[in-house]
């Protein structure tokens, strides 16, 4: 019998969280509007698929991160709550519907991610490019951030996305190298993810940003986080996010530690010292959390510095 099972009620006991892992439950209103719009347009979000604890906050502000290419992932990472299996064929109408949702939500910055699609010859890169083009056509002036899978390391696929010139190209390294085998699907690797970022940096105009993210609280040491930040910076990353790993329902990896808010402050400071122009670290920071601030906030990189 698992130690966490409460046999008197025949269900798992609720997890215990430190006081800083506490959010506001959304109130009705904007959340209902976002839900209804996504349902009407038949779109998926990583907010919902990954059981993101920020969903209430983000949706209350009419912001969501679209997850294209279905909600079934071809990989099975131990940290992830997204369903795994055999994905369906790409939906040709999806790019137009994503653009429609962005227009109706009135977004000024859009974030598009996807499940991993090892089953597709281009890994889904063509769908990313099509979505970017659809948003450019339907929503002029809206900035675009893509958070892509590793495309199996295929440089041509990566360049298919970068040629569409998203303002931000993001790919998450997820964790420090020592924990990759524990947390990520065997088809992913630390070196491959660094390669994706490097390829994107080389292919993108200087005016576009390259971004990555990692989870902490998985059993990594502080020195391993420092080394990973150095690697990401060397690979050409401009921006980085660091957040607490929280185990989703169905996830296999346990939380090893709840990182204190003070430690997150140190991580953010270290990232900026490493040379990133944008760093955001905190218990509830996720790849796309307040993503617009990279382009619109105090972290905007002066044009003169982009040489």
């Amino acid at each position: 019998m698992p130690a966490e099972t409460d046999m008197t009620k025949n269900r798992p006991t609720p997890p215990k969280f430190p006081p800083w892992i506490r959010q506001s439950w959304p109130q009705s209103g904007a959340v209902d509007e976002v839900r209804d719009l996504l349902r009407e347009l038949g779109l998926n979000t990583v907010c919902r698929s990954a059981q993101c604890p920020n969903q209430g906050e983000c949706w209350s502000h009419r912001t969501a991160t679209f997850m294209i290419l279905g909600e079934v992932c071809s990989r099975n990472c131990a940290f992830c709550g997204v369903g795994t299996g055999t994905p369906a064929a790409p939906d040709e109408g999806e790019p137009a519907r994503v653009a429609e949702a962005i227009a109706r939500l009135g977004l000024r910055h859009s974030v598009i991610t996807s499940v991993t699609r090892d089953d597709l010859p281009d890994g889904g890169a063509g769908q990313f490019a099509a979505v970017i083009q659809a948003i450019r056509g339907r929503c002029p002036g809206v900035t675009i951030e893509v958070l892509t899978p590793d495309f199996g390391g295929d440089a041509d696929a990566i360049r298919l996305v970068t040629e569409a010139k998203p303002e931000v190209f993001a790919h998450n390294v997820e964790t420090v190298p020592r924990l990759h085998r524990l947390l990520r699907d065997a088809r992913a690797s630390y070196e491959r993810s660094l390669g994706v970022l490097k390829t994107a940096r080389e292919a993108l105009p200087e005016s576009c940003y390259v971004k990555s993210g990692l989870m902490v609280g998985c059993g990594e040491g502080e020195d391993e986080v420092w080394a990973t930040l150095e690697d990401l910076h060397r690979a050409g990353c401009d921006a980085v996010t660091i957040g607490q790993y929280l185990k989703p329902r169905g996830g296999r990896a346990e939380v090893a530690a709840f990182i204190t808010p003070e430690q997150f402050v140190r991580y953010e400071k270290k990232a900026l010292e490493t040379g990133f122009v944008f760093a955001m670290a905190g218990p509830f920071v996720r790849s796309s959390y307040h993503a617009d601030e990279l382009l619109t906030g105090t972290f905007r990189r002066p044009a003169a510095a982009k040489t």
């Binding site: 609720p14 997890p15 969280f17 892992i21 506490r22 959010q23 506001s24 439950w25 109130q27 009705s28 059981q51 993101c52 604890p53 209430g56 929280l246 185990k247 989703p248 329902r249 509830f284």
Partner: peptide
Amino acid sequence: VTDKASFVVPCP
């Protein structure tokens, strides 16, 4: 509490 966090429900 959910799988991922504690939440406070506000009075409407």
